[in-house]
């Protein structure tokens, strides 16, 4: 008997993406450039986060027609985003056959209290987190993969670094706690106790943990890998730069050889201009995407 949509199978695809780069794309042509550069998956969107930020208003799931065209254009896995709490957008994406759903703060949330019950789906979900409690709440709801939130669409990696350091630091703290302190830690973080026990035992998240939000250069990608993430999402950083194909290929190489400064130096040259960056302090508090999600 073949069993589909099991936890092993959902988590398993994320395991296969490790050490790779998942790139935001808005057209089949961009998807092919990403695949040709060595992306291990693409995220199908109507607009990259930098354009969503610039446009303002309500950002929603992409047009299914665009998603299907991207699915037809490449052989690598295709992910797509739904608004936080919008389980009907997720039902639509599952029906389309996308390989992973990102319940994402980049889009405008529809529910200010509840995320999607991700166990209700056969398709796996990835969710953003700024700290361990948030990561474990999402896993508790059924997310089979976690990524940092960072601050999307900024080309500024400072928030992704903050979130990765926070998550890794809290894991180290939990792993060193005597067992009787874990219940209070779970209570303080607002995290499911069973998952806190798992983190204490494993010394890591029980699912794959990627970095996302502001990665713009090969060095940014290697920095996040050295901080302990399993792989990289690049949103606006590829197709908002002046030479997307070369930059995409360099970020892929840097993610594989993240510990090799000689190769990092070689692949970082002659890439043209990176995407224009945004200082986080210049973003109005209500425009900060990372504060979406609960």
């Amino acid at each position: 008997m073949a069993e589909k949509g099991t936890w092993t199978v959902k988590k398993g695809l994320a395991e296969m993406l490790k050490g790779g780069v998942i790139m935001d794309v808005t057209t089949p042509e961009q998807a092919k450039i990403a695949e040709e550069a060595g992306a291990c998956a693409v995220m199908a969107l109507e607009r990259v986060p930098a354009d969503i930020r610039a446009a303002g208003g309500v950002a929603r799931m992409a047009d299914p027609t665009i998603i299907k065209k991207i699915m037809d254009a490449v052989t690598i896995p295709v992910m797509a985003k739904v608004r936080i709490g919008h389980f009907v957008e997720a039902q639509i994406l599952e029906h389309l056959g996308v390989d992973y759903i990102d319940e994402s703060e980049v889009l405008t949330p529809v529910d200010e209290q509840h995320h999607i019950d991700k166990y209700a789906f056969k398709v796996p979900f990835v969710c953003g987190a700024r700290n361990l409690g948030e990561a474990l709440r999402r896993i508790g709801e059924g997310a089979a993969m976690i990524r940092t939130k960072g601050e999307p669409g900024t080309g500024n990696v400072v928030e992704a670094v903050r979130h990765m350091r926070k998550v890794m630091g809290e894991i180290r703290r939990i792993a060193n706690m005597p067992r009787e302190e874990l219940m209070a830690a779970a209570k303080d973080m607002g995290a499911p106790y069973e998952l806190v026990l798992q983190v204490a035992e494993l010394g890591r998240l029980p699912v794959v943990n990627f970095a996302a939000g502001g990665i713009a250069t090969p060095a940014d990608a290697a920095l996040m890998m050295q901080l302990g993430c399993d792989g990289i999402f690049v949103g606006s950083g590829i197709f908002k730069s002046t030479n997307p194909a070369a930059r995409a290929k360099a970020v892929v190489a840097a993610t594989t050889h993240y510990n090799d400064p000689k190769i990092l130096a070689e692949v970082s040259g002659d890439l043209g201009e990176a995407m224009p960056g945004l200082e986080i302090a210049s973003i109005q508090p209500e425009q900060r995407m990372q504060d979406r999600g609960w």
Binding site: A2, E3, K4, G97, V98
Partner: peptide
């Protein structure tokens, strides 16, 4: 490649 379909068709079996 991908002969068993997309991710929603991924499975485990004895």
């Amino acid at each position: 490649r991908n002969a068993s379909g997309r991710q929603v068709d991924s499975f485990e079996a004895d």
